[in-house]
Design a binder for these strands. Sequence first.
DNA 1: TGCCAGGCCCTCTTTAGGGCCTT
Length: 212
Amino acid sequence: MNLKHADTLVVLDFETTGLSPDNGDRAIEIGAVRIVDGKITEQFQALMNPGIRVNSFIEGYTGITNTMLDGAASCSEVMAQFCDFIGDDNLLAHNASFDQKFLDNELSHISRTYKGEFTCSLLVSRRINLDAPSHSLGNLVNQLELSEEGSFHRALFDAQMTAKLWLHMLAQINETYGIERAPFSLMQQIACTPKKQVAKILQNYSIQNATL
DNA sequence: TGCCAGGCCCTCTTTAGGGCCTT
């Protein structure tokens, strides 16, 4: 991880033609925000034409129609711009394995890569919001009263809500363990630690950090 | 013809099954 960007994070969300790029699905919209020092500072949003028709389920699910995509720039053009946007920053998404698959697939089409590392707000939420009955983005936003005007299942709004959820969980960790703005590496560790061990890791980090 | 995503996580588990989460 580039230490220059250690406290900078790009939160991203794709809308796609389906669930699997291995089955030929492509991205149709990318939305993202950049968090710098705990604040959202920039945003990126673009529709992209995948070169294939979007089925009626996806049109209804996202509100993105074939007509809207007919006039959009190509995936290659949009993803090149987005690759420039993310630069060397670390990356976050809700259920990141899904968005990482599509990011990797779309960038492979234009022979581009990224240097940042991914982490997942869904995995962290399952370990931090222990009483939440659901960890879907929409349910978490409602349960934690983070909601604002906008439509779920559009890329920029979902990225904005994921960023809000992330900042909320950082605040929860600060309130419970006294860890002010937990670093990305610690959040990555939480995301891949068995649930029962998370409290111990945070307690140990808090103690070690306090004695520095 | 039949199938059609895949990783995480829990439990009535680990020689497995099913729900959750993303579009």
